[in-house]
Simulated scan of single mutants.
Amino acid sequence: MTLLVFGQAGQVATELQLQAEVTALPRAAADLSDPDACAAAIVAARPTAVINAAAYTAVDRAEDEESLALRINGAAPGAMARACADLGVPMVHISTDYVFDGSGDAPWQPDDRTAPLNAYGRTKLAGEEAIRASGCVHAILRTSWVFSPHGSNFVRTMMRLSETRTDLSIVDDQIGGPTPAASIAGACLILAQALRDGAGGGTYHHAGAPVVSWASLARATFELAGREVAVTGIPTAAYPTPARRPLNSRLDCSSISRDFGIAPPDWRAALSDMVNELTS
């Protein structure tokens, strides 16, 4: 299988390159703000499967740059999917828990009603809808709270802050499943192969277990790193941001486990490995 990956330096794209033989396209080769260029890259490469691991992920900045985020997160995946449909090539696309409004406390099912709270979520939902409308064989993989030793993420931020801070106030009422980028990459590879082998695809959820709050994830990080940082849990209302965040980011992952044997990863083991890597 010849895999073409959009994204090169991001967390999941980095893990894909570590786990498999892929052609990973940097921004210079396929700028997602130019959807036509993304489609042309697929036509030129003639891969057997496409994985889109690139996105506009600056959640707060997207409130002021929604048109740019929409080109990258909405129009570009749609253009990729139409090119895949023309070539008969399957596509795996990474999406987000932010397509939901975060109400209640039940885990979100893949077919639950979407209602994004912010511009980032709206643009990611637009990408999902464009892929579904394209007619290509696809798997949309929604995930949450991605972390890895690479790139920018919450755990790396906590590790950096722990070098100079002895106490932190962190949101404690947003609940979700921290997800190792390596596990997302592995799921994408399984899905790509399954689609090539004739699986029907659809929309799936893949997130880490057990669910926790951001404050609890920070405490776990500091404990593993041996950093003495006191964490005070605060409500989201006490930490206002330009973009509203969902309080409930729990994702039901039973369908991907049933259809492809992909179980939710235990984020605690991956966090331990990551902290060891960053502190060794």
Rank of each mutant, 00 (worst) to 15 (best):
R142F: 02
S144H: 14
W145N: 08
W145F: 14
V146G: 04
F147P: 02
S148G: 10
P149I: 04
H150D: 05
H150M: 09
N153M: 03
F154G: 03
F154W: 02
V155M: 04
V155N: 04
V155R: 02
R156D: 02
R156S: 06
M159G: 13
R160C: 05
R160W: 08
L161T: 07
E163K: 10
R165H: 12
T166C: 13
T166L: 09
D167W: 10
L168C: 02
S169K: 11
I170K: 00
V171E: 01
D173L: 05
D173E: 06
Q174F: 02
Q174W: 03
Q174S: 10
I175C: 13
G176W: 01
G176S: 09
G177M: 06
P178D: 03
P180M: 01
A181I: 02
A181V: 03
I184E: 01
I184F: 02
A187S: 14
A187T: 15
A187I: 07
C188Y: 06
C188G: 07
L191T: 11
A192Y: 12
Q193V: 06
A194T: 09
A194L: 05
L195N: 11
R196I: 07
G198T: 08
A199R: 15
G201I: 09
G202H: 08
G202E: 03
Y204E: 04
H205M: 10
H206V: 06
H206P: 15
G208T: 01
A209G: 09
A209Y: 10
A209T: 12
V211H: 14
S213Y: 01
S216T: 13
S216K: 12
A218T: 04
A218S: 07
A218K: 02
T221Q: 14
F222N: 08
L224C: 10
A230D: 12
A230H: 13
G233S: 12
I234G: 10
I234Y: 02
P235R: 05
A237W: 04
A237T: 13
Y239N: 14
T241E: 11
T241V: 09
P246I: 02
L247G: 14
S249T: 07
R250M: 03
L251M: 11
D252V: 00
C253R: 01
S255D: 07
S255L: 09
I256K: 00
S257P: 01
S257Y: 05
F260I: 03
F260D: 03
F260R: 09
G261A: 03
G261I: 03
G261F: 06
I262Y: 00
